[in-house]
Structure formats: C-alpha cells, structure tokens
Design a protein around this nucleic acid. Structure first.
Lengths: 184, 184
DNA sequence: AGTCACCGAGAACGTTCGTTCTCGCTTTGT
DNA sequence: ACAAAGCGAGAACGAACGTTCTCGGTGACT
C-alpha cells in the first residue's frame, strides 16, 4: 500500500516522457506499459482511462515546470536580475537533450480543439506563468504591461527553440527583454 | 481534365479547414470525403496517401499565409509602418472566427517528432517568415537582430491568442515592437 | 441501340488502439 | 499444507482508421 504511490509516479514519469517526446496520440497505452513496466491491469487501476492519465501528466508538469523556473529565478538577489534569470533558465531548458517545446502548447495544438480539459490545462499553465511574471515585474517596480510583453517573448522563444532545435532564441529573448527593461 | 484541378483544390480546402480546426490525427479520410464531397477513390487518385495530403496542405498554407501577410504589409507607405502593420495583420488574423493558432506550430507539436517532413515544413514556414521580417527590418535601416526579436513577439502572440481565444496579444506585441523600434 | 470504359457510393480489409478478460502462478492466512 | 485471493502477462474485443475493392449505374463512342 505504501508501494502504490511509487508505481503511480513511475507510470506518470514514463508516460510523461513518451507524451512529451512523441506527442500524445502517437503513444499507445502499450507503450506506457512497456516503458513503465506496469501491467495494463494496474495502469487502469491507477488511472481510469488514457484521458485521465494525460490530464494528470499535464497537472504534474505544470507544477514541476513552474517550480523549476522559480527555483532558479528566486535565487537571484535583485528584481532586475530575477527577470533576466527567467530567460537564462529558458536557455538551460532549451539546451536539455530531447527538448521539444512546451508540453502545453503541443497538447493544445494536438487536442485543444477536441478536449476542453486539455485546453483548460494549457490555459491554466500559461496563466500561472503570466502571473509569475507579473509578480516579478511588480517587484521590480516596472509598469504592469511589461509582464505581457515578457511573456510573449518567452512563448515565442519556447516555440522557436523547439522548431529549430537550438537554445539561441532564449538569448534573443533575453536581449529583447533587456531592451524593454532599460527603455520605458 | 480541366475539371480536375478544381476538385483537387476543393479537397485541399476542405481537408485544410478540418486539419486546422480539429488537428490532423483527429480528422479521418472519411471526414475529408464528407466535407469535400469527393469520393474516396478520387481522393486517393489525387493524393497517394493521407500523409501526402497533409504535406500538400502545409505547402499551400505556407504560401497563402505569407501572401496574405505581405499583401497587407506591403501596402503601407513607410518601412516603419510596414513593420507595425505586421502586428495589425496579426490582430485581424487572430480575430477571424475559428482562429486556432499557427497550423505549423500545431502540426509540429502533433507530428513533428514522428514525421520529419512535417517538421521540415514547419521550419521552412518559420524561416520564410523570419526572412520576410529581416527584409522589413533591413529596409527600415534597423539593426538585423531586431528581426529575430520581432519574430519572437509574433510567435508568442500567435500562440497566446490561440490559447486564450483573444486577439489582444497582437496589440501587446505591437506595443512591444514599437518600444523596441523606438529605443535602440 | 449496344458495348464498354469509367465513376460514385459505400462495403470490405487489415491494422492499430483503448479497454477488458483469462489464465496460471504467487502469496497470504489459518 | 491448503484454500482463497491477488496479480502479471498477454490474449481478446470492439471501435476507428487508412486504404482498397465491388457493384451498379451512367455516359461516350460506333
């Protein structure tokens, strides 16, 4: 019984890795079974359906992603440094092997039109990111509209870095953010 | 024989509309048949496979999209106005009913990991967009790195507008572009 | 008018996928 | 030691999909 949570997490990790790297519809439950080593019967005892597994993956990814970002950003001493640290963290993220963009943007493109819950998760995630940027901008004493502009730069970098498989867009976004910061 | 091209276009239009609004994998060939009114036999005479139909859709979308953008932008008198016109055109695009983001970003998220040809089409499209922006920036006598920044703003706006079903990000991106333009 | 090639409508085929079921083994409780 | 319950491995099932085939009718050519 204390062992159930670990296998649930093992399933989520394996499924998440597959969903992220290959796309959701491309990954069958058999692939999740093979990757996690958890038999189908147990999979369906832990998650009532593939849809539920997908949604739980998105929920977890949302929390993990924001925690990782904040973990790096909040370590910076000054508010200005925290803002540019967002883009430095993006650079590191884009440089990870297997980086394939934002799981929420990808899921939305794949299933947003057909699954309101996936669309809602994506909106929730981006809203949380925007709220986080808003806090950073406010703490820096900058005008509120800066947050939206930084968000656009970040989203653009996320997408472009995925398409061209290079972390370079993070640098461009950081430079652009720097320009926006230093010239009201 | 002179009638073959119209039905080919009818298929592409119907399939494109479906692929864009629902996602590619969600749309079966039967749906394309129903929407276009072209029987399956003829569909497969025109396109050897669904993959070929998808790729042809992307090729056409690439050309149409850039032509529509340039059609609006190139009508502006001054280089600076042409640059901000890009974002005005985005605003109009985001406001169209059924707007669901960039077909290439969506296809890449859905199939980029599994279809090198889809990934290549997406890269080609974004490269063309970037090249177009580079021309605009150069014509305005601005530093070359501005093009990349504008592209990031545009991509971010495209994605954000789709997620939240609002054209507002185009305005934010335009304001940010304006700020970048007027403060080197 | 008759023959023949063509074509639309949809059935059929083979595969894949989500989900459930079967079966045999292991483990547990007494 | 033995019965009963649980579980892993994979077969099985029903639906959906991409692709091909069949059939009945229609139009063209002679």
């Amino acid at each position: 019984m204390a062992e159930q949570e670990p296998t649930r997490q093992r399933v989520l990790d394996a499924a998440g890795e597959l969903f992220y790297s290959r796309g959701i519809q491309t990954v069958g439950m058999d692939a999740v079974r093979n990757a996690s080593g958890v038999p189908l019967k147990r999979l369906y005892a832990l998650f009532p359906s593939k849809d539920a597994l997908v949604l739980e993956f998105l929920r977890q990814r949302d929390a993990q992603w924001l925690r990782a970002l904040a973990g790096h950003v909040d370590a910076q001493p000054t508010p200005e440094e925290r803002i540019t640290a967002v883009f430095d963290w993006l650079y590191a993220w884009f440089s990870e092997p297997g980086y394939r963009g934002c799981a929420f943007i990808n899921s939305f493109g794949e299933l947003g039109a057909v699954s309101p819950q996936v669309a809602e998760q994506a909106r929730h995630h981006k809203q949380a990111f925007h709220a986080y940027l808003t806090d950073l901008v406010e703490a820096a004493g900058r005008p509120a509209e800066l947050a939206g502009r930084l968000a656009l730069l970040a989203e653009g970098a996320i997408v472009t870095a995925a398409l061209f498989a290079t972390p370079e867009p993070a640098r461009q976004a950081r430079d652009a953010a720097h320009a926006l910061l230093h010239t009201p």
